[in-house]
Write a protein that binds this DNA or RNA. Structure first.
Length: 460
RNA sequence: UCCCCAGUAGCUCAGUCGGUAGAGCAGGUGGCUGUUAACCACCGUGUCCGUGGUUCGAGUCCGCGCUGGGGAGCCA
């Protein structure tokens, strides 16, 4: 008999069908002449309750089934006589696959997130983490669907990069040189002897690649791992995370913001539509305001706020900030939080930032002091998207690179696109983990990625 | 990297004024019951994070270190 997943069994609308299924025991309750076994196979949040009578073969062994054990069951679907579940399975055959010893760390009670992080290899077997990672999977699909439906092409940008400065923070070095290699030059590793013949790192962004392809295929996006060697110790940062980076040709900042807003709205609607059961768990146990937040994210008009206007609002707020607000200074977390959580109480897109605090590739505005940058700020998570219209004018781009001390030689291929058929284009980066935090209400990035990499932490 | 907080049984925590550690859950045994984090009775459990100090005496006070968490910066 073919195995059926529990999610399919529970979709039944008539009793009487015979099923064969496998899973892990979540809990067992014994009665005089039979035993209730709740089984979960990870296909959905719900367990299926199995009624195992003492007339079954190996019933003595069935009574030894502990939480975490694995079992295969053949039985008939019947309407449950108890409360709490519609269906249950009257077992005809129960075959024990393995018994988990009583040292199994997951118990039938609530554990702290901190403890579960120490057993990251087992935590997806809990309701909460199972739900989080099913949602993560569904949202990955939704990302592809959103872009594909709009005619975007999916680009695999490289993980190893030779660009010595992608401009987004500290990088992890990639090398095949032995640590004690004698091939040193002026006390530094002699990269000419290295695998690629030059210094290489893990990528901090697929943007530059995406620009090249946007200027060829039109609309493209990347979706892959990204690495930052920053010594960041916060609940919002990881050294390895996944980023979605669309890049659009013939697209200005306004259209860029429209796509960013539509993207977040699509993803939050998608998860409400496709993952109601898993979402309900988070609304119940993690964040009581989650559904209201999601409705807000999915259906409110996002505020468009020039940086200068943001500074004005903050200065007039009457609120004492730890850091002063002033043109030319970047907005601090406390400022972003005030705008999105207190003042507007919904997502806010701040744009046209001072050029001195932004990277070389952002397009200089006509005022000469701001660039066409935008950040999407959401309540609770903060910055979830950062993007810009890219500088397409060769002369302006070159002088910006000079100002910032970047070598044009290393970017000859990047500059080529401004030489040959340059066009206005724009793009942004969305932190995928931050999106999952937003839609689940989970407060720590370490709990939305299977095996988190953070400073001093890479056990799994 | 900086600031703040925490570390006690397998897990979640309590521990008074400095006087030699205890509860729930989990586990074991028995009972009961179409049960729902089942219930009832009984049973065991400790490098009190490590290290140095103060003290007659330290889980408790002080120094240093380690680990974890929160906030800040960096950003997605």
């Amino acid at each position: 008999m073919k195995r059926t997943k529990i999610i399919e069994i529970l979709k039944s609308d008539v009793p009487g069908d015979k099923f064969f299924f496998k899973g892990w025991v979540r809990t067992r309750r014994d009665s005089k002449t039979f035993s209730f076994i709740e089984i979960n196979d990870g296909s959905c949040l719900k367990n299926i309750q199995v009624v195992a009578d003492d007339t079954l073969e190996h019933y003595e062994d069935i009574k030894k089934l502990t939480t975490g054990s694995a079992i295969a069951v053949t039985g008939t679907l019947i309407e449950s006589r108890g409360k709490g579940q519609k269906w249950e399975i009257q077992a005809e055959k129960a075959e024990i696959i393995s018994i988990a010893p009583d040292t199994y760390p997951l118990q039938k009670k609530r554990h702290t997130d901190e403890f579960l992080r120490t057993i990251a290899h087992l935590r997806p077997r809990t309701n909460k983490y199972g739900a989080a990672f099913r949602i993560r999977s569904e949202l990955s699909y939704a990302v592809h669907k959103f872009f594909r439906d709009r005619g975007f092409r999916y680009l695999h940008s490289p993980i190893i990069t030779g660009s010595d400065c992608e401009g987004a923070g500290e990088m992890f070095r990639v090398t095949t040189l032995a640590p004690d290699s004698p091939s040193k030059k002026d006390g530094k590793p002699d990269y000419a002897q290295d695998f690629f013949g030059k210094e290489t790192n893990l990528t901090v962004s697929g943007q530059l690649s995406a620009e090249m392809f946007a200027l060829s295929l039109g609309d493209v996006y990347t979706f892959g791992p990204t690495f930052r060697a920053e010594n960041s110790n916060t609940r919002r940062h990881a050294a390895e995370f996944w980023m979605v980076e669309p890049e659009m040709a013939f697209c200005d900042l306004t259209e860029n913001m429209e796509i960013a807003e539509a993207f977040i709205k699509y993803l939050s609607s998608y998860v409400m539509e496709e993952c109601p059961e898993d979402l309900e768990l988070f609304a119940k146990f993690v964040d009581k305001t989650l559904m209201r937040t999601l409705e807000n994210i999915a259906s409110s008009e996002y505020v468009r706020l020039p940086y200068k206007a943001a500074v004005k609002i903050l200065n007039r707020s009457g609120k004492k900030f730890d850091y002063p607000v002033d043109f030319g200074k970047d907005l601090q977390s406390e400022h972003e939080r005030h705008l999105t959580e207190k003042h507007f109480k919904k997502p806010v897109i701040v744009y046209d930032y001072p050029k001195d605090i932004k990277p070389f590739y952002m397009r200089v505005n006509d005022d000469g002091e701001t660039v066409a940058a935008m950040d999407v700020l959401v309540p609770g998570v903060g910055e979830i998207i950062g993007g810009s219209q890219r500088e397409e004018r060769l002369d302006v781009l070159k002088s910006r690179m000079n100002e910032m001390g970047l070598s044009q030689e290393n970017y000859w291929w990047y500059l080529d696109t401004r030489k040959f058929g340059t066009v206005p284009h724009s793009g942004f980066g969305l932190g995928f983990e931050r999106l999952i935090m937003l839609v689940t209400g989970i407060r720590n990035i370490r709990d939305v990625i299977p095996f988190p990499r953070t400073p001093n932490s890479i056990e799994f």
